[in-house]
Nucleic acid binder design. Structure first.
Length: 438
RNA sequence: GCCCCGGUGGUGUAGCCCGGUUAGCAUGCGGGCCUGUCGAGCCCGCGACCCGGGUUCAAAUCCCGGCCGGGGCGCCA
């Protein structure tokens, strides 16, 4: 092992082009491949942006450089200083003739998987060695796209007048009932990990009016599927003086914006993922009421009693019928959480929506109740105790505006964009019932 | 939690149905040859049957249990 010293990268591998012929450069990265021909050694050096060939001819480089090159194995960390050479026989017509190599760190073999991708590995093996897995272009592409998705969401919502906020993830009581919570010990007191920023973001509309949060939520459900995790990142939005229709409109324009940005900024990544067919969806997205969806399913032989949630096989059938993005609106009030507003003219139906992509639910939202008495009534109807919500409910005495919002699962959106089947592919270090490490 | 399928060198696999070979292949790692490779090539070597019990002269192979994994479903404001 040698120190980095005063060496700093002058170019990413992808920036080494024939136009730099004759220039001395310093590149840093990992030994991707070695082609040792005896007195001529080729090192393929890989960094985040790609690969570049380092050429070490015995009779043209210092003796110690040649000796070091001979000792390298795959994934050793090196820095190389040398002269760029335009050469037709080299990959991409360019290579670096190494003058000096610094071996910054050695690998301790065997590696748990092959970053060069010559040998396949199971998802489980890949997740157990996620850092190595992330060196594969296919894996990294997903998270580069994730970055652009996050960036474009922030850009769009900021332009729409929303303010990004952060709400507590350690909370005192069960916020909404429903999903199971992870208990934590908070200096001897019982606390929980937040399942949703729902109540906080609603309260914030009474001051900041238009807010969004991108953050983790925690759900202690023992589900075992390709679309559920116990820790997930939600994009949550809440908007004062607005209804479900208004926030659906924001959501569909946001989705189109995200797709547009990914398509224009991630063409390389989409190509790696075989997703060059990605299309920016046209707005507005189709809207179907819950009742219309039941009718549609009935036409395809699936009978679901009005009022019940849609089971997975029904969703899959729906995904065959409706391929792209769409909304399911006007869900039965009973099947939605207590804070969702029932329709004034027909309280059995709520001003709610799910945002779907094929069979996959990406987001849900609706108009919220801002009337305290109605909210208390709905709490009781859902079997919840209003006393547990007193800190939340008192805000409704302080001038709560009418408001609406939604929550969008970030990784599920990424699944759609990248066309991957398992949500674990779209989370760096996924947490599910059985996986707590790494 | 339920159902189905699976578990063989570090990784990915063949063999299992129909029990008996030195458990095959690829990749990797170690050694050797090689000055234009580009998933370099060639030669030599290293390294594996998830755990426990049962059946049998004999188990990677058949049976039972456990653990782990994959898929489906359930659960999922």
């Amino acid at each position: 092992m040698e120190p980095l010293g005063d060496w700093r990268r002058t170019h990413w591998s992808s920036e080494i082009t024939p136009a730099l012929d004759g220039t001395t450069v310093t590149v840093c990265g990992w030994v991707h491949r070695i082609r040792d021909l005896g007195r001529l050694v080729f090192i393929v050096l890989r960094d985040r942006e790609g690969v570049v060939q380092i050429t070490i001819p015995k009779d043209k480089v210092p003796e110690h450089t040649f000796e070091k090159a001979k000792k390298l194995i795959r994934e050793d960390v090196i820095a190389v200083r040398g002269k760029v050479r335009f050469y037709e026989k080299a990959p991409n017509n360019v290579e670096i003739i190494a003058n000096e190599i610094r071996i910054l760190n050695k690998v301790s073999p065997p590696l748990p998987l092959d970053p060069a991708g010559d040998v396949d590995a199971d998802l489980d093996t890949r997740l157990n060695a996620r850092i190595i897995d992330l060196r594969r272009p296919q894996t990294f592409a997903i998270f580069r796209i994730n970055h652009i998705v996050l960036q474009s969401i922030r850009e769009f919502l900021t332009n729409e007048g929303f303010i990004e906020v952060n709400t507590p993830k350690i909370i005192a009581t069960a916020t909404e009932g429903g999903t199971a919570l992870f208990p934590v010990s908070y200096f001897g007191r019982q606390a929980f990990l937040a399942q949703s920023p729902q109540l906080y973001k609603e309260e914030l509309t009474a001051a900041l009016e238009k807010v969004f949060e991108i953050g983790p939520v925690f759900r202690a459900e023992e589900h075992n599927t390709t679309r559920h995790l116990c820790e997930l990142v939600m994009v949550d939005l809440e908007c004062a003086f607005a209804t479900a229709d208004d926030v659906m409109n924001i959501l569909e324009r946001l989705i189109a914006h995200v797709f547009r940005e990914v398509k224009s900024k991630c063409s390389k990544e989409l190509k790696i993922l075989n997703r060059e067919d990605l299309e920016v969806p046209g707005t507005p997205f189709p809207r179907y009421t819950y009742t219309q969806v039941l009718e549609l399913l009935r036409e395809h032989g699936i009978e679901i009693p009005w009022g019940e949630d849609l089971p997975t096989p029904a969703l899959r059938k729906l995904g065959e019928i409706l391929k792209g993005p769409y909304f399911i609106t006007e869900w039965p009030t009973e099947s939605k959480p207590f804070y969702i507003k029932p329709k004034d003219e027909d309280p059995k139906v709520s001003e709610s929506f799910d945002f779907m992509w094929g069979w996959l639910e990406l987001a849900s939202g609706g108009t919220r109740i801002h009337n305290k008495e109605l909210l208390i009534k709905r709490l009781k109807e859902q079997g919840l105790n209003p006393k547990s919500f007193e800190y939340h409910l008192r805000v409704f005495d302080w001038g709560m505006p009418p408001h609406a919002g939604w929550g969008l699962g970030l990784a599920r959106l990424l699944m759609v964009i990248c066309n991957v089947r398992n949500i674990r592919e779209c989370v760096l270090f996924p947490r599910d019932k059985s996986r707590l490490v790494p």
